[in-house]
Design a binder for these strands. Structure first.
Lengths: 243, 243
DNA sequence: CCTTGACCCTCACGTTGCGTCGGGCCGTAC
DNA sequence: GTACGGCCCGACGCAACGTGAGGGTCAAGG
């Protein structure tokens, strides 16, 4: 790092940028080295390096090269609005990134120990996620995610096992024509409501969204929701009778 | 949306993609419509639309077009590792985005009500942020951010006012040669330590990093840290004497 | 039959910020 | 003298389209 002016390779090493990047900055006129040797070598002075460090600093904030140029080349430029614009934009992008991570995390967790997952299963699950996202607000989804972490994956699998059994039992009672106020049906209703409550975490909004989804969609997660409608009515009656 | 096959414009409206995008997918062979009319119009069948929706689904996860192609075109493809790779990558990017947002937020907040900010001030502050980031771990910075929000901006400005005054008083006592165990110096030491404590929030690690920074850097935020070294020793003696 | 307007086609260049060649000159050490 | 590494310029490549230019097609209306 002996005498200024320095050649391009020195500058590259010093700043961590690539030689090509410095060529590029020169080419677009963002940083033109003050001198050229007789052989055509770019020669950078201390002032050039200072400007380059400013460029690097502004780039760290995610500014585009043209914005960096605007900052450095117009002496009375006030970067405040630029920063605020960038902040808003960055926050948006971060939100999008966060949601994407959530989705990926869910998918990764969903098949945590599974060896191989087929593309069909993946697409199926994405489709379900999209359907679900249609009915819950982002905040509700966040709530559900937290709740899912609270109850643990083991319990979730337990419940996923239990649901179809419970539905079978309810269907049986319905077909037998059992009175909703009978003790057997009451017990089923209590189990039903308990599972729902475990899912919603007692949040009324989430339960509302869940019901809206059940009434609008005809199938999800392999369950025929249309066929569930009468069951829900039946259980609803039993629950009402219990009170 | 009458009879399949549909023309490109219909498909575009239906999927929310642009016509150009569909052209592009055709060009790279990701989605070639099953038919062409005699006039050369692209004609998409229901199967084409189904594939397109799969493409859109996978793109939502942030997959590159080539990855989408790999998923859809090799029948025994298992996307699990792809998802995990993507998740790791996405988390990294989100972390970077978060740090960038933090920096921008700090800058925006730093000049909250100021009308115009010069580029020099901006660059100066970025430089300080870089120096600070050299000495604190990301977790510590997060802690400091939270702490800053707790104490409020008004108090921060108060402290920023108070520091130079306190330093002046300490310097005066030093030059007078006052005994560190004297009551006057003890009082100064108590004020000094109190301010430090208010900054660190009582965190030993942060205080350590702060001291490292003070000993390594020669100037920050317009304060001559080299000149502060003897003052810190002096206060240290006074504090030790107090105990 | 002609026009109009919506829709479609195929090039083909622009975008961002460089990475990565290829072919050839320059500088220094052995 | 020559070998090796640094530097030059020019040009293509990248991801995923956007945005024209210039021109055909189709259905309805005058």
């Amino acid at each position: 790092m002996r005498p200024p002016p320095w050649r391009i390779g020195q500058i590259a090493k010093r700043t961590g940028l690539s030689v090509r990047t410095l060529h590029w900055y020169d080419e677009i006129g963002l940083l033109t080295p003050s001198f050229r040797g007789e052989s055509g070598y770019r020669l950078y002075t201390a002032a050039d390096v200072a400007r380059l460090q400013q460029i690097v600093s502004l780039r760290q904030l995610g500014f585009a090269l043209e914005e960096v140029r605007a900052c450095l080349d117009s002496p009375d430029f006030s970067p405040l609005t630029l920063i605020q614009r960038h902040l808003a934009h960055s926050r948006d992008r971060m939100e999008a990134q966060r949601r994407l991570c959530d989705r990926l995390e869910f998918l990764a967790a969903h098949w945590g120990e599974t060896e191989t997952v087929s593309v069909e299963e993946l697409l199926q699950t994405i489709e379900e996620m999209n359907v679900i996202a249609k009915y819950y607000s982002p905040e509700q989804l966040e709530q559900l995610k937290v709740r899912g972490e609270q109850v643990g994956k083991a319990r979730i699998r337990q419940v996923e096992d239990e649901w179809p059994k419970l539905m079978d039992e309810v269907r049986t009672e319905m077909e037998k024509g059992s009175d909703p106020s009978s003790e057997v049906v009451q017990a089923l209703a209590r189990r039903w409501m308990s599972l729902i409550h475990e899912f919603t975490g007692g949040d009324a909004g989430i339960e509302k969204s869940l019901q809206t989804m059940y009434s609008q969609e005809q199938s999800i997660h392999g369950t025929d929701l249309k066929a569930m409608q009468p069951m829900m009515d039946y259980i609803g009656k039993a629950w009402a009778a219990a009170k």
